[in-house]
Design a protein around this nucleic acid. Structure first.
Length: 901
DNA sequence: ACGGAGCATGGTA
DNA sequence: GTACCATGCTCCG
C-alpha cells in the first residue's frame, strides 16, 4: 500500500476541496483515489481524516448520510472517503464500521469490485474482471455466502449477523483506506490501480512475502483474479497443481483466488487493516462466492474438473460459522486477518483411527489447491494453537467424480481431542494465506450452529423442524426440539433443519458413536423432567432390548418440571416453583404447566396467585421434595459423593444411582450403556459390563463378595440408613401409621405393603444418602422389601427379588420415591383393582408428569409392584421413562452396533 | 494376521 | 435421477 502513495496532485493546496490550506512540504496522505493515488492533505485535514471525522467535518451537509441499522449512528455513505466506514447489508441498510466489526458482518463492501480491492499482479485480469467482477459480486451469483449476510446471521436482525467473513483482527490504518477507496473506484480505473497495487502491497507492512505472491499468486491479492479467474488465467498455475508443491501451507491460493471472489481480495485488503472499518471484511465474507463458478474451478485446476457441476454453491452445512471467539482463537496474531472458508462436522469416519477426513468436494475444490492426481499434495495446516500439521490432500476417484480427503489427520484430531460430531473449521490466515484449522466441540457448536442455521438457512430452516442439534441423541430423540433446547440449555443444540441435513440423515451412526454420549445422557435426564405425554394422551410403553421406553404418539409436551406428591388427604397434587419468586405452589396433579410459570398463573389457588403469598411448603417438606425434582442436580450430587468412593464402586454406584433416580434404569442406564458401553465390553469392570447382557449368565448371589456386589450392598445400606433416619425424624407419624415399625417408612401410605414402607416416601434424596456414611444394616435391607429390587438386582433379573439387590433397591427406592409414596400407594391400590399395572399413574396422566412425577411414579409403581408382588403379579419389572420416543431409541441401538447393515 | 490404502456400496439430499 | 459422502469391504504390503 505504501507504494501506492502517490501525490494526487501537484497542487500545493490540500486535496480537500473545502479546505484551502496549503499542504505541508510533506503532505500527509489521505484516502485513496480512484486513480490509485492517495489524496494529499494538509495536516489539519489529514488529522481529521485519520480520526475518522472527515465526513463529519466536511460532508455534513452533503447527501448520502444514512443510519446504521444497528446503533443508529449516522454514517456518511456518499463519498470516497467514507467508503470504508460502513458496510452494506444484503437486506438493505448499512452498518457503521463499528457495528460491522462487532457483528462481524460481511462487509457491504462485498459489493465492491474485488479488483479494486486488490490489484493482482496481473493487470490484464482486471479488464475482464472488472466488468465481470462487478456483476458477480453484486449479483446474486452462485455464491450463497455473499448473498446474504443473513445467512450467517441469526434469523433476526441483520445487525446481529455475524460475519463469517474474514475477521479482521487488527485495525491497521492506512492501507485499508486506500484499498477501500480503490474499491469504490470505478472498474475502469481498476486496471490502473491494480497495476499499482502490487507495489503497494509489497511495500506495505502487510505485503505478502515474495513467496506468497509468486508461488501462490494469490495471497491476498486477488480478489479480482478470482472473478477473472474464470476468464483466464493461467496465472495461478503455480498453485494449481501439484504435488510438486511443497506443503501447501501458506497460501491457499486457490481459495483465495477463486473462491471467493473476494476472499482473496478481502484478505488483501485486510492486509492492511484499516483503521476504519474495513471493506475488506465484506469481501472476506464472501469467500464462498468464489467457490462456485465452475469455471473457476476449472481454472484452478488448470483442467476441467470432472464434475464441473459445480455451481459452486456450498451447502450451508459447510458454511463457516465462526464466532468472534473462534476467530480470535485462530489468530494468534492480532494483526492477521482470518477468512473463514468452511467447516465440517466430523463424522465417525473422520474422527476414527483411519486418519482420513473426508472433505466436502466443493470446499476442497474451492479452497484447497487443485490437484490433478489422486495422490494430491501435502497441505500444511496450522491449528489454532499455531501448531503446524501436514496433511495429504488428495482425492479418490468415485463415480466419475472425486472424493477429497485429508489424510493423516489423526494426530491433529487427537491433539484437539475431537470426536465425531465436533466441527473442524478451515480458514485462511492473512497475510500469508496460511490454512488454519480450528474446531468447535459439538456441545458448543451445536448451540452456535443452530443459531447460524436459523440464519443461514436463508429462511429455510428454523427451529421447529429440526432435530436437535446435538448430534446424537437429540435429533430423533424427541419430537420436541424445543424441549431439548430448554432442558439442555447451551449444550443442546437447537433443532435445525440444517442439522438434520448434516447429521441428521447421515449421522445416525454418528449419533451413536458420538462422543457426546455423556451429554446425551445428561440431556436425557434433563429432558425427562420436561417431557410428558401430550394432554389427553397416555404414553405407550415400548420394550426395546429389554428396556422399556415411553413413547408418545404425539410430540411430547414440554412442561415445567414439577414435583408430584400426595397430600395428607391422599389427593394427588404437584408442586411447581414460580419462576419469579421461586416459591413452590401446590397445584392439581393433572395440571400441565408451561415451561415458564409464575405465581400469577396460579389460578388454582387464588390466595397464592401472587409472589407475595407465603409458601405452603415448609423448608423441611420442600427438602424432601426437591431432591427428586432436579435430576441434574441430583446427578451432580451423586457424582460428588461418588468421588469419595473407590473407582470400582463408582460404576456400581452410578448404576444404582441412575436406577434410583430414574426409577428404572431403563432410560438412563440405557443411555449410559449406549454412551459408554455400546455393548458389553469384555474387560470393562463396570457394573453394567460385568454382567452378562440381558441378565444372562451366572448371577451374583447374595453371598457374592465381588466388588460390584459389595459396592451395591454398601450403597443400599447407606440408602437405607439414610432413609430411616430421615423418616424416623421427619415422618414419625407416617411411620406410626405403617404397621411395620422396623421400617422407617414415613410416607403416609395407604398401603401396608412392605415395599411401601421400605420405599419410604420420598423425603430422601438418593444422592444425599449416598454421600452420607454407609452403615450397614443388612437386616433392615433384608427386611425391607424394595420396589426396585428388579432394578437393583445385580443380575438384573426381576425374578430374583430375594437376592441382595432387592434390599439395596429398596433403599434406593425409598429415597427416590419419597413423597410419591402416597401417590404410589394410591396408584397401587388402583392398579390392583384395575389390574393395569403397566402404566403408571404418572404416565397416564398427561399433564401431571414432571420429571419427578414421572420418576416417582415409575419408581412407585415398581415399588408397588414389588411390594405388591404379591398383590400384583403383573407388573413390569422395569420401567423406564424416556422422554424420547421409543422410535428414536430403537434407531440408536442399531447404530451402536455398528455401521450400516 | 494386521493395518493401511483405495474402491465400492448405499443412504440421503 | 444425480451427486455427494460416510462407511464398508477388499486387496496389498
Amino acid at each position: 500500500m505504501t507504494s501506492t502513495s502517490v501525490v494526487t496532485s501537484s497542487s500545493r493546496i490540500c486535496f480537500n476541496s473545502v479546505c484551502n490550506d496549503l499542504k505541508s512540504e510533506r503532505p500527509r496522505k489521505g484516502w485513496q483515489l480512484r486513480t490509485g493515488e492517495l489524496a494529499e492533505l494538509c495536516d489539519r485535514c489529514a488529522s481529521i481524516y485519520d480520526e475518522g471525522r472527515f465526513c463529519d467535518a466536511f460532508h455534513l451537509n452533503a447527501s448520502g448520510w444514512r443510519t446504521c441499522e444497528s446503533c443508529g449512528k449516522r454514517v456518511h455513505c456518499g463519498c470516497i472517503v467514507s467508503a470504508y466506514a460502513f458496510a452494506l447489508l444484503d437486506a438493505g441498510g448499512i452498518l457503521c464500521i463499528a457495528c460491522s466489526r462487532k457483528n462481524a458482518v460481511l462487509g457491504p463492501n462485498s459489493s465492491w469490485p474485488p479488483s479494486l480491492l486488490f490489484n493482482s499482479s496481473l493487470p490484464e485480469r482486471f479488464k475482464d474482471c472488472s466488468a465481470k467482477g462487478w456483476s458477480q459480486l453484486t449479483g446474486s451469483g452462485p455464491a450463497p455466502w455473499r448473498q446474504a449476510p443473513g445467512l450467517f446471521n441469526s434469523s433476526t436482525s441483520q445487525p446481529e449477523l455475524h460475519s463469517r467473513v474474514p475477521y479482521e483482527v487488527d485495525l491497521s490504518t492506512g492501507i485499508d483506506r486506500l484499498n477501500v477507496s480503490e474499491r469504490l473506484s470505478i472498474p475502469s480505473l481498476e486496471k490502473k490501480k491494480n497495476e499499482d497495487f502490487p507495489e503497494r502491497l509489497m511495500n506495505g507492512p502487510l505485503k505478502p512475502s515474495a513467496h506468497d505472491i509468486h508461488e501462490n499468486g494469490n495471497t491476498g491479492i486477488n480478489c479480482e483474479e478470482q472473478h477473472t479467474s474464470c476468464l483466464t488465467k493461467p496465472q495461478l498455475p503455480s498453485l494449481k497443481e501439484d504435488s510438486s508443491n511443497p506443503p501447501f501451507g501458506l497460501a491457499v491460493p486457490y481459495t483465495s483466488i477463486d473462491e471467493a471472489n473476494g476472499q482473496m481480495g478481502v484478505s488483501g485488503t485486510h492486509l492492511r487493516p484499516n483503521p476504519q472499518p474495513s471493506l475488506a471484511k465484506q469481501f472476506h465474507s464472501n469467500p464462498h462466492n468464489g467457490l462456485d463458478s465452475s469455471g473457476e474451478t476449472q481454472m484452478r485446476n488448470g483442467r476441467p474438473r470432472p464434475d464441473g457441476r459445480g455451481r459452486n454453491q456450498l451447502f450451508p452445512r459447510y458454511w463457516p460459522r465462526f464466532t468472534d471467539q473462534d476467530l480470535q482463537q485462530i489468530s494468534a496474531d492480532s494483526n492477521s486477518i482470518i477468512t473463514p472458508l468452511f467447516e465440517k462436522m466430523l463424522s465417525a469416519s473422520d474422527a476414527g483411527r483411519i486418519g482420513r477426513l473426508v472433505l466436502p468436494k466443493k470446499c476442497a475444490e474451492a479452497y484447497f489447491p487443485p490437484i490433478s492426481q489422486p495422490e494430491g499434495l501435502p497441505l500444511k495446516v496450522q491449528d489454532s494453537k499455531g501448531k503446524e500439521w501436514i496433511f495429504q490432500f488428495r482425492f479418490w476417484p468415485n463415480n466419475n467424480s472425486r472424493m477429497y480427503v485429508l489424510e493423516g489427520v489423526t494426530p491433529c484430531i487427537q491433539n484437539m481431542q475431537l470426536q465425531a460430531g465436533d466441527v473442524v473449521t478451515f480458514s485462511r490466515l492473512e497475510p500469508g494465506g496460511k490454512l488454519v484449522m480450528g474446531f468447535r466441540k459439538a456441545s458448543a457448536a451445536s448451540a452456535s450452529e443452530q443459531e447460524n442455521e436459523a440464519k443461514n438457512s436463508n429462511g429455510v430452516s428454523t427451529h421447529g423442524d429440526a432435530e436437535l442439534a446435538d448430534p446424537s441423541s437429540w435429533s430423533k430423540v424427541d419430537k420436541s426440539g424445543y424441549i431439548a433446547k430448554e432442558a439442555l440449555g447451551t449444550k443442546v443444540a437447537v433443532p435445525r433443519k440444517r442439522k438434520n441435513s448434516v447429521l441428521g440423515s447421515k449421522s445416525k451412526r454418528l449419533r451413536i458413536d458420538n462422543e457426546d454420549m455423556i451429554e446425551l445422557k445428561l440431556t436425557w435426564e434433563e429432558a425427562q423432567g420436561l417431557l410428558r405425554p401430550p394432554p389427553n394422551h397416555v404414553a405407550n410403553v415400548v420394550s426395546i432390548e429389554g428396556f422399556e421406553f415411553e413413547e408418545y404418539e404425539d410430540a411430547p409436551v414440554l412442561g415445567k418440571p414439577t414435583i408430584f406428591a400426595t397430600d395428607k388427604s391422599g389427593e394427588k397434587i404437584q408442586w411447581a416453583q414460580c419462576e419469579d419468586c421461586f416459591k413452590w405452589r401446590r397445584l392439581p396433579s393433572d395440571v400441565l404447566l408451561p415451561s415458564k410459570w409464575t405465581c400469577s398463573s396460579n389460578s388454582w389457588d387464588p390466595e397464592r396467585s401472587s409472589c407475595s403469598a407465603t409458601q405452603e411448603l415448609t423448608a423441611e417438606e420442600l427438602e424432601n421434595l426437591l431432591p427428586h425434582c432436579n435430576l441434574a442436580a441430583s446427578k451432580k450430587m451423586k457424582a460428588a459423593k461418588q468421588e469419595s468412593e473407590n473407582v470400582d464402586a463408582l460404576e456400581g454406584l452410578d448404576t444404582l444411582a441412575n436406577l434410583a433416580i430414574l426409577g428404572e434404569g431403563g432410560v438412563l442406564p440405557a443411555s449410559q450403556a449406549t454412551t459408554k458401553h455400546p455393548r458389553h465390553r469384555p474387560g470393562c469392570s463396570c457394573i453394567v459390563c460385568i454382567q452378562p447382557p440381558s441378565g444372562k449368565g451366572p448371577k451374583h448371589k447374595q453371598t457374592c463378595t465381588c466388588n460390584v456386589c459389595q459396592t451395591v450392598k454398601r450403597r443400599f445400606r447407606t440408602l437405607m440408613l439414610r432413609r430411616e433416619k430421615k423418616q424416623s425424624q421427619k415422618e414419625a407419624d407416617a411411620t406410626r401409621k405403617k404397621q411395620q415399625p422396623s421400617l422407617p417408612d414415613k410416607v403416609v401410605d395407604d398401603e401396608p405393603l412392605p415395599c411401601t414402607t421400605s420405599a419410604g416416601n420420598s423425603s430422601l434424596n438418593p444422592e444425599k444418602v449416598v454421600s452420607e456414611n454407609l452403615d450397614d444394616d443388612t437386616n433392615r435391607l433384608k427386611s425391607s422389601s424394595s420396589p426396585f429390587k428388579g432394578q437393583i438386582d445385580l443380575n438384573i433379573q426381576p425374578e430374583r427379588e430375594e437376592e441382595l439387590s432387592p434390599g439395596s433397591d429398596s433403599g434406593g427406592t425409598m429415597r427416590l420415591l419419597q413423597d410419591a409414596t402416597d401417590k404410589y400407594h394410591r396408584q397401587q391400590s388402583i392398579l390392583s383393582s384395575s389390574g393395569n399395572s403397566n402404566i403408571e399413574v404418572t404416565q397416564t396422566q398427561p399433564g401431571s408428569g414432571t420429571e419427578l412425577g414421572k420418576i416417582n411414579s415409575s419408581i412407585d409403581l415398581r415399588a408397588s409392584h414389588r411390594d405388591a408382588d404379591m398383590d400384583h403379579p403383573a407388573i413390569f419389572p422395569i420401567k423406564t421413562f424416556a422422554p424420547t420416543s421409543a422410535t428414536v431409541i430403537s434407531e440408536m441401538l442399531p447404530m451402536q452396533n455398528g455401521g450400516r447393515s
